[in-house]
Design a protein around this nucleic acid. Structure first.
Lengths: 200, 200
DNA sequence: TTTTGAACAATTTTTAGAAAAAGTCAGAAA
DNA sequence: TTTCTGACTTTTTCTAAAAATTGTTCAAAA
């Protein structure tokens, strides 16, 4: 039998992804599980803890996928990066509602900040690992890998933000923005690595 | 004698830069000019029109400075781009308050969107002009200048946004973020042009 | 150990009145 | 004619209390 906490996370994730953290009540989650709210509180001390676990699950899934892609890398860096961008875009679409007010409203007052910071660091690590492989294999010429990884991570995050800002203002999620993000990220990736790649 | 509208813009700009659009009243602006509010309305039909003119003035100043820097370009692209970054950072610091809630609250319901879009396009044009000069002079090797200009503009905007998000959330302006933005932008610029530059 | 109903506490939403600010206009001053 | 003003109306924002919702706790039952 599946761990009870996992069941809760699963059910909560469904509601959160649909309606957002704010518009999902602990009662609704409990009802979905056909238990009482008090029983839900037996497993989670408060709502933020539950949200945290849900976010960690998503981040772990995404990170796992990215690592798998990086491990597949042979000699085509651009292809690998584009695969990562595509994978991330899938997650963006699936959990687009989190991009909007959700984050903003909930982040304050909760210790979410440091967790999100850790997600970001893991993100940089993945990129660094990929760049290292590319340099070792001789495909890529680059001087400072650490700096490059940070720059790439910041660029990706920045572009993603740039194209969702309109939604944050209006408060209305419009996941067609994901297309814009993907296009922008791929364009930038091409620009950066054009000239750095020693085609074999 | 100076044009009356220019006087108004000048005075309004001072208040706006200090207190933001929201917390500056038409009465205060009129008082600063030692005229009545009704008289102010003789020159500007409403507050958004005034804000628009103020924004246009800032944008024109910034754009003028950028063009001047680009015209100075000889054979050091990185130096020129870093100069532009520094100039923009000056404006960011000066008008940092506009980065916060201000934009968000006022943009909705006003036709500001298309004006801001035009600012952005002029921005891309400046970068394009610079890249063209660099390619012509033989310093830079790049395949698609149009795409590159868009990418560079998006990257700069994205990074700027990325490092001001925390302020937007808290609502408290903290212009020390400008340092982070500048560092990030310069790091990224180095990454991108490393390998593309044919040092003479 | 797990679950529940009932109660309590904190937060959010609503509402209505007051205050502030935006915007208008007939007519005076230049 | 152009520029300006005082008095006025309309719209938006602020405030504070009441109501409703949601988060959280706990003694006791299964």
């Amino acid at each position: 039998m599946e761990n009870r906490k996992d069941q809760i996370i699963e059910v909560a994730l469904k509601r959160f992804a649909h309606f957002g953290f704010h518009k999902t009540t602990m009662n609704e989650i409990a009802d979905d599980l056909r238990i009482t709210k008090a029983n839900l509180y037996y497993y989670y001390p408060d709502k933020p803890s539950l949200i945290l676990d849900v976010l960690c699950k998503i981040a772990a899934d995404l990170n796992g996928g990215e690592v798998k892609i990086v491990n597949k890398y042979k000699d085509d860096l651009l292809k690998t990066i584009n695969e990562i961008i595509d994978l991330r875009s899938k997650f963006m679409r699936k959990y687009y509602v989190f991009h909007i007010n959700e984050n903003l409203d909930w982040i304050k007052g909760i210790d979410l900040a440091e967790t999100v910071e850790q997600f970001y660091k893991r993100d940089v690590e993945v990129i660094k690992a990929l760049l290292n492989k590319a340099v070792t294999s001789g495909e890529l010429t680059i001087s400072n890998i650490d700096e490059a990884a940070i720059s790439l991570a910041e660029i990706q995050k920045g572009l993603s933000l740039l194209h969702t800002v309109s939604d944050v203002i209006t408060g209305i999620p419009n996941d067609s923005n994901v297309d814009k993000i993907v296009a922008s990220q791929k364009r930038v990736t091409k620009l950066i690595f054009e000239g750095k790649l020693n085609r074999i």
